[in-house]
Structures are given as C-alpha cells and as structure tokens.
Amino acid sequence: MRHLLSTHDLSRADAIRILDTAEEMSAVNDREVKKLPALRGRTVVNLFFEDSTRTRISFEAAAKRLSADVINFAAKGSSVSKGESLKDTAQTLEAIGADAVVIRHPASGAAQRLATTDWISAAVVNAGDGTHEHPTQALLDAFTLRRHWAKLAGTPSGGTDLAGAKVTIVGDVLHSRVARSNVWLLTTLGAQVTLVAPPTLLPIGVEHWPCTVAYDFDEAIDAKPDAIMMLRVQAERMNASYFPSTGEYSRRWGLGDERFARLAELGLADTVILHPGPMVRGLEISSTAADSARSQVLRQVANGVSVRMAVLYLLLSSGLYAQDATAAHAKESAS
C-alpha cells in the first residue's frame, strides 16, 4: 500500500490489517505516554482545501502520537485562494520534504490526482475528496462496529470482519463520500448494507452497488438492522428540489424519537447508531437518539485517531522497500 485513496480498491486483507493495527494503536491511546517514536523525523502535511477542524485535528493527533512532524496547510487565505494550482502546491510540499500528504479537497479525485501524477512523491492519504470517498471515516466506522460486536460476543476483535452484520445507511447518499466509502468497505468486510434515501438523493447507477436500496426508513428498521448510520443532510439541498422541505425530509428520513423508540419495541437492544458528524440535530437525527447509549458518535471520534495512526504508520513506516513477505521473513530469522 503506497497511498490510501479509496476503500473501493482496498482488499479485505489490507482492510483487516489496518483495523488490527488500529487495535494496537488504540492500546497506546490508553497509556499515560500516548506517543510512539515510529515516525520520528517524518513530515506529515495536512493539506486542507476545505474547512474540517474535526478531521484535521484527528489526523494531527494521529501523526503526533507517532512522533511525526506535522505541518497544517489550510488552503483558505493562502496562495491557493489567490489562484495557485494544486500542482504548484504539491510541488511546494515536495520541495519542503513532505513524506505524507493528508488531503481534504472539494474536488472528487483530487487525492488520486496527487498520487498518480509526478507532482509529488509523498504518500497520499485521502481525507475526503468532493463527493467521492472518505476512506478513513469508513475504516473508523468499521473499527467501531467490529469492536462493538466483538465485545457483545466476548471475543477479541483482531482478525475479524463484519460478516453477516446488517448496516443501514440513511440520508443524502448522492452527495456523500462517507456513504460511498462505507458501502465498499463494509461489504468487503462481509456486512449487508442497505441504503435508505429519497430517490433524488441516490445516484443514477446505485443499482449496481453491492447493497440494497430502500425508500422507506420504517420498513428498513423493521428489518432489524444491527447498526444505523445517519448521514448529514444539507438544508440547502432543499433549494435544488432534492426534497420539498426540511420538515418532510425529517419526517420520512430522519431518525426521530418515534423511530428511535421503535428500536426498543422491536427488541433491538444491541443496535447502535453511527453518525460521521457534524450532526444536524432535529433534521436527520433527534437529540434523544444522538445522546442515547446506542450512539457511537464519541467512540467514532476516539477510534478515528487510532485508525489514522494505523494508516499513517502502515504507509510511512516502510519508505524504501515494497511490501514483500519473503524479505520480512528473511530479516526476522536473521535477527
């Protein structure tokens, strides 16, 4: 793995390797000294063309806990807003000596452009590109779910996947990079994914995705999901006629108090609620649901740091040699 650009092309083995490594990272986060020397002397640039304090500080904490030097490059108000191209910015970072670039960008494919051009040689981590993908968000969601179910089963989560789990993703799938990354990753890990959304907020072509699609949230709840992932809905979509009003959206596709209560009526004691944040309370999710014991929102945030540590570690700890199991084995025996 040279870069992490999407979950679409992530193999099951690589996904599990990231999740297992994140488990070890998570143990470090519980220690008094929350720091490892693994990336000492390496430079990680957080290149953010969109404001996203949450994602940025998560990556920053992850890099710092691995002892990397962190440079935060917020493109707003910089030379970029004066018309500097992505290419020039990338080449600047190359000249500075960046070993990894964590990029958040409003254009779909921006991370892949960085990774596949000769503008920069650093490892590229996609921290959200347009409406394409947000792979570390999906990984932290998978990590959170895996832990939850391992805990219920009383088994260690290491090495396990999400086989058989039913995950329902609700909201603006069309514009959601989180939904895309989760559909690919969760299904790669064996989960059954159902998308619930107004037909206007599903992409043409969604019927080719490895999941089922439904328009009725209540029916989806009656199908007894193990997890419900709510997506953020931007109220301004209303102005482009994606739905008639926020009130109607909330009634049909929001996780309001009644639907939340229905989970208990159905005896779904262990069904959890996820949200990538930031939440719009009252639109897609009620405060009762968001603040309930089912909500994994804060665990998602904490797990985000562990998952991002794992990704940075796996991408950066091997700088010179490609992945080669034979070489690893030979070295180990010689020690």
């Binding site: 779909s108 494919g109 394409h132 990079r177 895309r180 992409p203 043409i204 072509g205 080719h208």
Partner: peptide, 18 residues
C-alpha cells in the same frame, strides 16, 4: 456536470451528465 451520468459517475462522485 462533469462526466456521463451512470455506473461510473456514481462510483466516482462526479456530477452526472445525463
């Protein structure tokens, strides 16, 4: 619109051109 609207645009998250 950025590309043909269909299976590929859905995956790539690029606004579709029907």
């Amino acid at each position: 619109a950025q590309m043909n609207e269909g299976i590929v645009s859905a995956v790539l998250g690029l606004p579709g051109w029907p």
